[in-house]
């Protein structure tokens, strides 16, 4: 009985948490975002071919929420993140950030938004300039956006370093003097330096060791509470994404195939790709692994260059029908807040 009660209490709490999120305002809304890369054609060929990295992706993130974007390599999750920040120019669609469509802004108009949206990168070795001290790395953004100068700026940098678990006297060192986990902390401090509202975390932990990953994830959660941040968390490690996200979007070959709350996604995945993806994760629990029935997908992800007509997952889908090869499925709402793009569910 008591077990049931606690689980009931939990669902009540979960519902409360969901309602809390509903009250909050949407910070960013991505609508039909497209990013095509022109491919080099054959010599003398007039035909142009495009790599459709992101094709009609729509989602929104509320203030204070963590939205996870998962998928396998080449599915367009990183490109989506980079296009939002205008590191790539969108081919089509809207990026409504706090009421402004970022896709239409000029580079100059974009500058104040670069302060409000920051990014944390995957590779902590490549994303820090090796010729700059930590002080310069963190301070650069503060100067660019004319936030603080002189003593105040220095205090701010020291403050940031302490927030991410480093020491004041680390400020004068160079990136090579730090371990991977520490470098990622510097990258996070750099992102925080300009007091952003949205942080795009592009695989922030996948280059780190298991024991260090948990440190960084806990820190990301702490600073989110403290600075009231919104995260777009991009990763391929589903268990970590489930852990950190409130809602999750699953991408396959440039398309969003399923979006819903993270608990819901793991309890009740609907899209055949999501189900296969979830069952593919190796669980560090041998007794459970033996019980689980695994859905093994056949074949590989098709090339995103001139992708097939119809559903992109059709070639590997276990429940494929003739309709899937002709008609592109649209996102449909299956339950409140749970959208899926599949003809056959």
């Amino acid at each position: 009985m008591s077990d049931k009660q606690t689980s009931n209490n939990q669902t009540v709490q979960n519902q409360k948490a969901d309602i809390n999120l509903m009250d909050k305002k949407t910070l960013i809304e991505v609508k039909d975002l497209k990013k095509y890369f022109l491919q080099k054609g054959k010599l003398f060929s007039r035909q142009k071919s495009y790599l459709k990295a992101v094709d009609d992706v729509s989602f929104s993130i509320k203030r204070g929420e963590t939205f996870g974007l998962v998928g396998e390599s080449g599915c367009g999750k990183s490109t989506t993140g980079r296009t939002i920040l205008r590191l790539y120019q969108a081919t089509g669609g809207e990026i409504n950030f706090d009421g402004t469509d970022l896709a239409k802004l000029s580079e100059k108009q974009m500058k104040p938004y670069r302060k409000r949206i920051q990014m944390i990168f995957q590779d902590p070795y490549a994303s820090l300039n090796s010729r700059m001290t930590v002080n310069e790395i963190i301070g650069e953004g503060i100067t660019t956006h004319e936030l603080y100068t002189g003593k105040v700026k220095q205090e701010r940098i020291h403050d940031l370093l302490q927030h991410v678990g480093l020491k004041k006297d680390h400020a004068n060192r160079y990136p090579h003097e730090f371990s991977g986990g520490q470098r990622q902390r510097i990258g996070i401090a750099r992102a925080l330096a300009v007091e952003p509202e949205l942080i795009i975390c592009d695989e922030p932990i996948s280059a780190l060791d298991v024991s260090i990953q948990a440190q960084v994830v806990n820190m990301l959660e702490d600073i989110q509470d403290e600075f009231d941040l919104t995260y777009l968390f991009i990763a391929h490690d589903l268990s970590m994404v489930k852990h950190i996200s409130d809602r999750i979007g699953v991408m396959y070959l440039g398309k969003l195939v399923e979006v819903c709350g993270s608990r819901e996604l793991y309890k009740n995945p609907i899209h055949p790709y999501t189900r296969a993806l979830l069952s593919s994760i190796p669980i560090p629990d041998p007794n459970l692994t033996r019980k689980n029935k695994r859905i093994i997908l056949k074949g590989d992800v098709p090339s995103p260059i001139d992708p097939p007509v119809g559903c992109r997952f059709a070639s590997r889908c276990p429940i494929m029908t003739a309709r899937c090869k002709q008609e592109d499925p649209q996102l449909r709402e299956m339950a409140p807040g749970h959208v899926v793009s599949c003809h056959n569910v």
Partner: peptide, 9 residues
């Protein structure tokens, strides 16, 4: 990738 990893395992 995870789904390919599952195949190899």
């Amino acid at each position: 990738d995870v789904t390919i990893q599952a195949q190899i395992l």
